[in-house]
Design a protein around this nucleic acid. Sequence first.
DNA 1: TCAGCGTATGAAATCGATTGCATAGTCGCC
DNA 2: GGCGACTATGCAATCGATTTCATACGCTGA
Lengths: 341, 341
Amino acid sequence: MFQKPATIQDVARAAGVSTATVSRVLSNPGLVSDRTREAVLRAVQETGYRVNQAARNLRMQRAGAVLILVPNLGKPFYSGILAGISEGFVGSDYAVLITDTESNPLQDATLSGYFIDGRIDGAISLDGGLSAEALAECTRCGAGGRIVFLCEWVEGQDFPVISSDNAEGARLAIRHLHDLGHKKIGHVTGPDGNVLTTARREGMVAERERLGLPVRPEWIIRGDFSLESGHEAAHRILAMHDRPSAVFCSADMVAFGLIAGLIAGGLRVPEDISVVGFDDIEMSGSFVPALTTIRQDRHSLGRRAAEVLLDRLAKANEQSGREPALPVELVIRASTAPPAY
Amino acid sequence: MFQKPATIQDVARAAGVSTATVSRVLSNPGLVSDRTREAVLRAVQETGYRVNQAARNLRMQRAGAVLILVPNLGKPFYSGILAGISEGFVGSDYAVLITDTESNPLQDATLSGYFIDGRIDGAISLDGGLSAEALAECTRCGAGGRIVFLCEWVEGQDFPVISSDNAEGARLAIRHLHDLGHKKIGHVTGPDGNVLTTARREGMVAERERLGLPVRPEWIIRGDFSLESGHEAAHRILAMHDRPSAVFCSADMVAFGLIAGLIAGGLRVPEDISVVGFDDIEMSGSFVPALTTIRQDRHSLGRRAAEVLLDRLAKANEQSGREPALPVELVIRASTAPPAY
DNA sequence: TCAGCGTATGAAATCGATTGCATAGTCGCC
DNA sequence: GGCGACTATGCAATCGATTTCATACGCTGA
């Protein structure tokens, strides 16, 4: 009923040559005489031939695909990164597979399994929560050199890491607030155990100490990068008798939730309390008030990860370790102002 | 250096049977005696064997993957949908490929090419801008029954469509504003030629006429679902001498931009002007003011599309056409109020 | 005892490409 | 004229699975 796709055999027959010659024309044209090459190319045109990927991959012992592990596809933060990754693989003859590690948790053997059964050649993980065991499995089956971490990473492992300069971002945020005159600076963290939580909190604490700013344990509020945790933080802050005059949030979404909660509680932002975010997602410039935040270049992060992985797939080079951190930038908008008192 | 993955041959040797038997144990265990089955399973355990997908796909003449065409991965609207799709394919032995049709535009032959060269078995398009020619190519190579549209669609084509009830959403929005007492209702549309633009505008116009509300052409402002177009719309509205008292936006992002622009221009929302969005993305509940909007269940949309495609891949049934539209819901929050006058 | 049937298994073809090796032809140089 | 080198091409093995067909075995019933 429908025409079956042409195979290399069909092309060979049409051009009056062997399949070997057809294959060579397509992958190594220099080996073939001009006359033959033209005849083959004509036959390819006529038959509408396209190389069957399953056959090609089988023969070449590769999968032709890379897997992106995303903690939660539903978070807007990741979309820009995915766009960057996707773009980075254009023209590379690798397909980009994406999986959500939250709705679809990985067992220890799952990731290595994808390598073993020839589903993927490499992986980019945006999830820093992979188990050491899962990673050890991958190393064991020779996939260790084809895994790259992006944004997050796993402590104590030696995989390449592409990430923003989180500590610097935290420092910039604190310095900005300090420059405005704030002394009592709070922080809503990410989830416990998350590497970004640590990096940002440590950057923030270090800078606060360097500047000799006062510290109160209750000003450090545990969050989880979500809107809701921002809301909750607002309630906590509203209930304090000694409130911080500014809050540095570990993510823009947290800042949005926080601001909404503070306003609902009768405070004004930035007049009564300043708020700084982290990420600079698309919305941040249009929030009311527009959010002062630390910009991560999500698109470049994605692209860079794709480049690094492609490089390792091509060269099979084994050098590992952290890539230089990508710069972050303080974006000053309307959610920060000098303190009222 | 690293152990090569075990093949079916290795398993056969270890179990003292033929490869045919191993294959049967794995795919059709009933055909094999208990003793042999156990021996094979033990051998599988010992060798850590996993079926090589490239070989399997080649032999079975399938690709083992589906492609999701996303207009712009960077838009938060899509992330929830992708999560739903991704979840819908869990346990299905299809890999989910994702491509961004904006950063990586499709030629007419690209999509059909993916089918022909055995890269994909099916596709879900969130992009209603596919060319008729590209789709005709797919039909020609027998892939017509394996394409499903989600959210958007192409007019005049008979592919299955999963979408929300856009017209009903528009009606709900207008009715809500009317119930509050608004008579002068504006609209920021989506981009020209987009099917959602049409569906929502027509729903809105129909309801406005039904309720006998006044119409002014300038109250219908062309947008493109983006934050920026909301901003621009705000400028237009601020410049009008006869302003609408309420605006229905074709997307939440537009509403955010609009509100920010209106506030910057000195108007209050909802006191001076009410705003309704469309989509109910995660942020909408926490925007200030919290956005009244039409909820689309993005997760269910994604899941449903996955189900429909899986169904067609399994049964190869040819019935086409539009699925029943998924219900939408009016979510009343703080961005709408009775008109001031 | 033997035909007949069902069950369990193996041998080998097959999917569609790539590539090592062999071969045929061409050219140049002594 | 003949030999070596080089070019262009084909044959056939190979990648790792699935599946058709054939066969061997065990059992039943006449």
